[in-house]
Simulated assay, not measured.
Amino acid sequence: MSQTTPRTVLVTGGTSGIGRAIAELFAADGDDVVLTGRHPDTVERTAAELSARGVVCDATDPTQVAALAAGLPEVHVLVNAAGGLPDPAPDHLPPLDALLAGWQANLAQNLLTAVLTTTAVRPALAPGGSVISIGSIGAERRGGAYGASKAALAAWNAALSAELGPLGVTANVIAAGYVEGTNFFRGALTPERRAALIAETHTNRPGTPADIAHTAHFLASPGARHLTGQTLHLNGGAHTTR
């Protein structure tokens, strides 16, 4: 359903996987979508394919994030989808240095991208707006540095919700389970591991980027205006709460 007045929707990490699916859904809804990514070629191509605006921005770089925010006088929906598994630390590093580099990279990509972007665009967030961050089931189980960074994302979101609530802006996390159609595993997922991940679900299927996109779309809808400060576990039942 198209909006009477198009909203400005900012999607970080919007050139592939979950971020792209979210950007595509909002663009199809008639919204003015601004998607970001680190690589100019993929940003330009994806923006053209989705009829969106593309901005090259490394969301771990405060200078680039500030420049992004300066070009957005009003934002109705912010989706923090940038993140993922960072590249391994260089082999030449001593073990503790390599460990530190890995943890710092995970925190930068999966927590600080959201913190920096949200803080930079906060003055532009419109009343009735939404901040949606993409978390992970890894925060609940054996997630290592990646899981810890996503757990920190959820903790930060709870505080963010309290700050933004009086402004009429909601803040929620979608904690995704196993999602096919992304490059998260970088081709390293074995058939056995894939089968095990699907077997954990109640729905007997993997998640899709569209599953995440439609949940994000709901969180930005009038029907979710009293839903804030939450982590929504979208994993087909692989992790349940009560």
Rank of each mutant, 00 (worst) to 15 (best):
T113H: 06
L189T: 06
N172S: 09
A224E: 07
A139C: 03
A105E: 03
V9C: 08
G129D: 09
T46P: 00
R193T: 12
L93A: 05
T5D: 13
P95N: 15
L167Q: 15
Q3A: 13
G128I: 05
L72C: 13
L232D: 00
F185T: 07
R242Q: 13
P95F: 15
A210E: 12
V43Q: 05
L219C: 02
L107R: 02
Q109T: 04
R7M: 06
N183I: 08
G54F: 15
P166V: 11
L232H: 03
E163I: 07
A139P: 00
G237Q: 09
G229T: 04
V115F: 07
R242A: 13
L153W: 10
A81H: 00
D97G: 09
C57N: 04
R142C: 12
G30F: 05
D31F: 04
I198Y: 03
P86I: 12
L111C: 02
Y178G: 01
V11Y: 03
R7V: 03
L107F: 11
A210Q: 09
R142Y: 12
R225Y: 04
Q109A: 08
N157K: 10
L189A: 06
D32W: 13
V11Q: 06
R122H: 06
N110W: 05
G83D: 04
T203A: 14
L107Q: 04
R141L: 15
A124V: 07
G13S: 09
L111P: 00
L160T: 05
S149Q: 08
T60D: 09
D29T: 11
T36E: 13
S130L: 04
L234S: 03
F185P: 01
A238W: 03
T119W: 14
E44R: 15
A48S: 13
